[in-house]
Design a protein around this nucleic acid. Sequence first.
DNA 1: AAGAACGTTAGTACTATACTAACGTATGAC
DNA 2: GTCATACGTTAGTATAGTACTAACGTTCTT
Lengths: 136, 136
Amino acid sequence: MTELTNAVSKRERDCLVLLKEESRGDFPMRLHEIASTMHIKPPTALNIIRRLKSKGFVETQDGMIKLTDVGDRLSKTILMVHRTFESLFCQSGVPESRACSEASEIDFLINGENAMKVLKRIDNPSSCPHGKPIRM
Amino acid sequence: MTELTNAVSKRERDCLVLLKEESRGDFPMRLHEIASTMHIKPPTALNIIRRLKSKGFVETQDGMIKLTDVGDRLSKTILMVHRTFESLFCQSGVPESRACSEASEIDFLINGENAMKVLKRIDNPSSCPHGKPIRM
DNA sequence: AAGAACGTTAGTACTATACTAACGTATGAC
DNA sequence: GTCATACGTTAGTATAGTACTAACGTTCTT
């Protein structure tokens, strides 16, 4: 987890998380799929994908878009940070859906190692409120 | 504390916090002072001030720049959120200066009421690691 | 052969951020 | 009294990010 956070913008983050969560088991996504899931038009999605590609987080093969190893690691970190803060908010009494949206605003801005320290501080939950595992 | 957070960008946030922390006791700031403290040129600072003015967070009188009541409330909320998360990071073992910079990245993005819930969750410290009070 | 689906290009737009160069006004030094 | 400095301001440029429409080319399927 080598200082990868803060390398992406909000929408790039959304796209990375989508690719990580949606494309389970090396099942890459198409541009139109990404666009419609993110509620944007294909040219806008293409723009985001291009930036992610130029940053080395994504690669395309025959219209299939998938995470690179580096992109996969970054996505994992972001999801770990996300679930850590989502858990914190929930433990604090914030409703689940609010907790999730708050976490989405900040998960790509916080350093992974610091988030892991926070995770310990909040009693090291093994899964987020949605039941998804928290790990690197 | 009525849903004011998320109303500003990062640099607008920096400027609000500067105005709140630097101008103690109705001692407003000049443009050049703001610019040099923020390490930007006066025209850039003017731009930020203009946006803050149009949002109703700042007003100018004879070149003196000061927070409006609404701006003052927003700054207070941001500082409360800042100190809450700074405390969280410190309690978690993150060094003080890192804790501060991480908190600065997110304090203007998080809802004040949710932050207050987090504050309770982390044992309601009355001051941040720097010794400054945490309150609304 | 026609149409749909999809990726892509080109062009526009707006916000945020930041710069330089230049200008006007005011104030203090001499 | 003039000159220089300081300061606010304007105008112009630039880049990144976000998002749109219109249009084009290719491919795949009826």
